[in-house]
Amino acid sequence: MTTEELKNVTSNLVVDARGTACPGPLLAAKKAIGELESGEIMEILSADEGTKNDIPRWCEKVGHEYLGFYDEDSFSRLFLIKE
């Protein structure tokens, strides 16, 4: 998805993992995914650069659909659809 499209996405759950470095954001996402129903959208806020690579790999492995990310001033927003 393009940045414009992502900005229009309504997330069902926002996971704020800005206060933690690798592998914190991944752990936060993994813990929170259980709160969502299949097909719902999760948004992860992360200040850890590596998360941009880690979250898509996680999605690929466990079956969630990774939508993409866009950068804010000091962090990124990553989006995915729960399997």
Binding site: P23, L26, L27, D54, K61
Partner: peptide, 11 residues
């Protein structure tokens, strides 16, 4: 421990 946590998070 970091590798273990990442792996566990990835099921």
């Amino acid at each position: 421990m970091v590798i273990s946590l990442a792996a566990a998070a990835m099921d």
